[in-house]
Design a protein around this nucleic acid. Structure first.
Lengths: 147, 147
DNA sequence: AAAAAATAAATCGCATACGATATAATTTGC
DNA sequence: GCAAATTATATCGTATGCGATTTATTTTTT
C-alpha cells in the first residue's frame, strides 16, 4: 500500500465502465448495421419509438447529449429517411424531430436487437437489476451539472 | 407488456452504461487537461506507471483496444515526450513503449486524480465493489472474442 | 530455402463526444 | 419598445473507437 495505489489500473472503477461500454457498442454494431443505425442513432430512435415527436433539447436531456453531437446525427437520420427535422412553428429556436413512416416501420425490425444483446451480456436478473440501479444513481447525481 | 417493451429506453442496461461512461470521461477532462492527457492516454500511462515497458500488443490486450486506436495515440504520447516508441530489436513486428523521465515524473502529478474522480461518483464501498465485480464479469466473458 | 500462413502495426473512412464559440430567436427589464 | 440577457442550435477543432484493409516481419510447411 503506497501513495500510488490509486493509480493502478486494477483499482479503477472507471476503466471497466469505459471498457464495458465500448464492448457493448462493439456487440451492437453487427446487429445495428442491419438496420443502418449506429448505437447513438439507435438510442435516438428508441426515444422516438416511444414518443413520436421530440425537440432536440428534450433528446439531449434524456440521452445526456448536446447539440454538438445531436445536430449532425439528426441530419444523418433525416438523410436515411427515418426522421424528419424541422423548426418549431411557435418557437423557431427549437428543432422538432418526428418519425417518418419508414422510421416507424423500423421498430418492428428492431425488436430482435435487445434479446440478442442480452445474450452477450449474460447477467443474472439480480445482477442486472443491481447494476441498473447503481448506474442510474450515478446518472441522477450528476444530472444537473451538464445542462 | 407488449412486444416492444424491450425497446424502451428505460428497459435498457446498455444505455446507462454508455451514459455513465461518457459522464465519467467528461468528469475526468478538466483534471486530465492539467496533465495534458486525454482519458485514453491516461489509462495507457497508468499501465506504463506500473510496468515501464510494454508492447503495443500487450497494451491492446490489457485495455481492450486495437492498433487502429493505439498507434496514433502512442504517437501523440511520444510527441508530448511522455513515452518513447520503438521497434523491438528481436522481433521487428512488435512496437515497444517505454516511459521517458518526463513520463515517470507525471505520475506524481497524477496521484490526485483518482480521489477527485471518486468524489464525483460517490458510491458506498459496497456498491463500488459490487459494480466492479459485475463489470469485470462482463469483460471476462467477452474477452476472447476480440483478439 | 522458397512459398504460404500467421502475426503485429499501420492506415483508411466513418461516426461519435467533447469543450468552446458563434448564430439565431425569444424573453426580460427598465 | 428596445437593448440586454437568455435560450436552443449550429459550427469548429480535437481525439477517440470501430471494422476493414494493407504492410511489414516472422514462423511454418513442404
Amino acid at each position: 500500500m503506497d501513495k500510488y495505489d490509486g493509480l493502478k489500473l486494477e483499482n479503477q472503477l472507471c476503466f471497466p465502465l469505459y471498457s464495458v461500454s465500448n464492448l457493448i457498442t462493439r456487440n451492437y454494431k453487427p446487429l445495428l448495421d442491419a438496420l443502418d443505425l449506429t448505437y447513438t442513432q439507435y438510442i435516438v430512435m428508441m426515444v422516438l419509438w416511444e414518443k413520436e415527436r421530440v425537440t432536440e433539447k428534450q433528446l439531449g436531456k434524456q440521452l445526456f447529449l448536446k447539440s454538438n453531437t445531436l445536430t449532425l446525427l439528426l441530419q444523418k437520420l433525416s438523410d436515411k429517411g427515418y426522421v424528419s427535422v424541422a423548426k418549431d412553428e411557435s418557437d423557431a429556436r427549437y428543432v422538432v424531430i418526428t418519425l417518418t413512416e419508414t422510421g416507424k416501420k423500423l421498430k418492428d425490425r428492431a425488436v430482435d436487437v435487445p434479446p440478442s444483446i442480452a445474450k452477450t451480456i449474460n447477467l443474472s436478473a439480480d445482477e442486472a437489476v443491481y447494476l441498473y440501479k447503481i448506474l442510474y444513481k450515478i446518472l441522477e447525481e450528476n444530472k444537473d451539472e451538464k445542462v
